[in-house]
Design a binder for these strands. Structure first.
Lengths: 246, 246
DNA sequence: CTTGAAAGGTGTACGGCGTACACTCTGCGG
DNA sequence: CCGCAGAGTGTACGCCGTACACCTTTCAAG
């Protein structure tokens, strides 16, 4: 019985010479593996049991390193936010903002679950606040009033993380190859009921330079919207906008 | 035994005269009660079991009316989208868009869970597409190119529903009255580490016309951001913007 | 080297979830 | 009156997060 228990604590090797003891868990290793696992199987499939299994450990073992699942997710967010490279100094505010947002976007896009998790967390961790602080400082440092900065940040919203506020979820998996006559019928019904949507949806692949069949270019959509917002913010600032008389 | 089974199918009355048979369930009643219940207890607490309990019915009874929980949520979304009043005709495009968005916002704000549920659904229901069609038609009808309309819709994104892309969750419940010296210490630490955030966060209550202590005005933030976007869209259109050379 | 406490890992168990499946009962058109 | 489709029931399964008591390992102080 003692042997059995011990053997369960050794890694894959069956021979008991040079048993190669499995390293202990710690919060960092738990979080790092959780992030990887969420990347692989999706955050919904990430359960305490599944994660524990990755370490050949019983589920409750994780609770020595994270308080509960909420704490795990919070720690995962902190982990990936730490991957955002720091901003470069000496840029004009608009370049600084754009650069920072794109850096965040690149980092967080590696983890498709980040948007849902970040947005569903209500309490902000220090890592989050640090990023937001660096972001806010850009505006104030460029001479923006606290008032305008406040509203600008609200307007940019989740885009500070590089998130798009998606409307159509284009990344969805397509329906698996319906027979052509059914597809044609669907298209016809669509054209009848949703002529405007159809006109718009089929517009973008018509550009001669674009690869045919390609849907929307996320990056382009993102930059388009961000430019709109920054244009507006710049103009409000030049006009000396203030919210005082509201 | 027969009596027992029967009695369980009668409403509150104990006397068995004029037994007042409980009306049968149907999809509409299930969805309507689900919406109410989600409003009351939050969508996370809305479970098949809890909802069934509302009807004094066994959980599996619901499955005669909805395919599964996903279908339930989808139906709930359709139900509240149906509450959005139709647009009024004959407005200039910008007024039409603003009016439509505010109508959606008013309708959906009555259901705080709507944002999370709508955004986490990947497949669009007919009600969703109908709304989007009416929205798209405004732009095309005003002479926007399909190209610009496409990108404009992406830029507006979730704001077509009146959603704000929140950054700070101001609606969170405050920490329950810490001792004042702890609060002061926290404030001091905050001021040290997050000076910019603090400056911005405390800026808005300083307006002389605002009620002191009031946080951000959601409605104002929303309109501010929407104006920014519509300004930009209007300008792109006036400039004959096109995405061709990208 | 011994020891003892802190920290890491185990095992069992509970209550909750969505829902599959087989059933009983009800209402209604013939 | 019958029979049948559809409504509602009851039981059960496999997941989930995690409380609690326990055992084992580690490591610094004696």
């Amino acid at each position: 019985m003692y042997r059995v228990y011990l053997s369960s604590r050794y890694a894959g090797t069956v021979s008991d010479e040079t048993p190669e003891r499995r390293p202990r868990l710690n919060r960092e290793r738990v979080l790092a593996r959780a992030v990887e696992l969420a990347d692989e199987i999706g955050v919904d499939a990430l359960t305490m049991r599944r994660l524990a299994h990755e370490f050949d450990v019983v589920p409750m073992a994780l609770y020595k390193h994270v308080a509960n699942k909420e704490d795990l997710l919070e720690g995962m967010v902190d982990t990936i936010i730490a991957e955002i490279p720091p901003g470069v100094a000496g840029l004009a505010w608009r370049e600084a903002v754009t650069q920072r947002i794109h850096a965040a976007r690149r980092a967080l896009q590696r983890h498709p679950w980040s948007r849902a998790v970040i947005e569903s967390r209500t309490t902000k961790t220090m890592a989050v606040l640090d990023y937001l602080e660096s972001f806010t400082a850009i505006f104030l440092g460029a001479g923006f009033s606290a008032d305008l900065t406040h509203h600008a940040l609200h307007a940019i919203g989740g885009r500070v993380w590089g998130f798009t506020q998606e409307l159509f979820d284009d990344s969805s998996t397509e329906a698996p190859a319906l027979p052509p006559e059914v597809q044609a019928a669907q298209f016809e019904a669509m054209a009848q009921r949703y002529p405007s949507i159809l006109a718009v949806a089929t517009a973008s692949p018509h550009d001669e330079t674009t690869i045919v069949g390609r849907g929307c270019d996320d990056e382009f959509e993102f930059d388009f919207a961000l430019d709109l917002l920054l244009d507006g913010i710049e103009k409000r600032r030049a006009d000396g906008w203030t919210s005082a008389r509201r």
